[in-house]
């Protein structure tokens, strides 16, 4: 007897494989992009089925939502240049690539297959010491206390990504039809709700799935919506305030990491009793920094040097 849920899982797996194949073999980049977003959404369903709601939230918000928007805007800017069909390569070469890929697949499959089906991992240790973490959600405890070092480095990576994008050029005005009244009305309604939901997700991260990355991604979707609606940023905020917001996440995290060090404590070892406050402070700043980072990446480059003369400086 196949239960309804395992039937659902089977359909989900088949759909994911089918989507992955079509997205990789799609000649049309727009088609591939749409399939990629669909893939992200189904992937987040798969994470829910694997009982990893934290990852599911992050996948839906970042993997499907923000990354999808980033890929779409990149396609809008560079799509035409890439449309000429690539040479398929010789049969020999394709055979070589296919056998290498199959070999890797077999190796990975063997590795997964040889893992024990039931493995405690570090779960017991994490649950045993949750009391020391200052939060109730084990995932937040791991991300911001036990393995805060990883999250700190993730923030460094995000910061470097913005530096990379900014070093390539200035943000261009995306060419799209005028926003129209319906979109502006929606923006007016949604932006306050987005801020609310983002704050809610941040606060929820203490006890349930949620946290800085999810909240930040939701807030970033607000920035994306504003940019799409043709609302231009306030020029006076595009100078140092923007830069400060971008760097704030990594900087504050680093400052906390170093400040708590001392005596017998190591880097990022919060003093007892301070854990919750410090985690909340870090997460709050991270949310804003992540949102601004993703929003800036969507804009696609640094703001024009002189805000008054720049394309983004004036309001349409």
């Amino acid at each position: 007897m196949i239960s309804a849920l395992s039937l659902f899982d089977l359909v989900l797996i088949i759909l994911l494989l089918w989507l992955a194949w079509h997205l990789l073999s799609a000649r049309d980049l727009f088609r591939a992009t749409v399939l990629f977003i669909t893939y992200g959404l189904l992937m987040s369903l798969a994470w829910v089925r694997l009982k990893a709601p934290d990852v599911a939230l992050a996948e839906a918000a970042i993997g499907a939502g923000i990354t999808g928007a980033l890929v779409l805007v990149a396609l809008g800017r560079f799509g035409e240049a890439e449309s000429d069909e690539a040479e398929p390569g010789s049969l020999w070469l394709r055979g070589l690539v296919a056998s290498a890929a199959l070999g890797l697949f077999a190796l990975l499959g063997w590795a997964v297959w040889s893992l024990p089906t039931e493995m405690a991992g570090l779960k017991a240790q994490v649950f045993e010491r949750m009391g020391e973490s200052g939060v109730e959600n084990p995932v937040t405890g791991v991300l911001l206390n036990f393995r805060a070092w990883d999250t700190l480095l993730e923030m460094a990576v995000l910061f470097l990504a913005v530096l990379g994008a900014w070093s390539l050029g200035e943000a261009e005005e995306p060419s799209m039809p005028a926003p129209g009244e319906s979109l502006l009305a929606l923006v007016r309604l949604l932006i306050p709700l987005i801020v609310l939901v983002s704050g809610y997700l941040l606060w929820l991260g203490e006890t349930a799935p949620g946290g800085a990355f999810q909240g930040g991604a939701v807030l970033a979707s607000g920035f994306v919506l504003l940019l799409l609606a043709g609302v231009r940023p306030i020029p006076s905020l595009m100078g140092w305030p923007l830069r400060a917001a971008l760097g704030s996440g990594f900087a504050l995290f680093l400052v906390v990491a170093v400040a708590v060090t001392g005596g017998s404590r190591m880097l990022l070892e919060y003093p007892p009793g301070w854990e919750k406050g410090l985690i909340l402070l870090i997460e709050g700043v991270l949310t804003l920094a992540i949102a601004v980072t993703l929003g800036v990446l969507f804009a696609g480059g640094r703001p024009p040097a002189s805000p008054g003369a720049g394309k983004r400086g004036e309001k349409r």
Binding site: S175, M176, P177, A178, G180, E181, S182
Partner: peptide, 8 residues
């Protein structure tokens, strides 16, 4: 084919 078509 015009971008800034008048709204509604």
């Amino acid at each position: 084919h015009k971008e800034d078509a008048g709204d509604e």
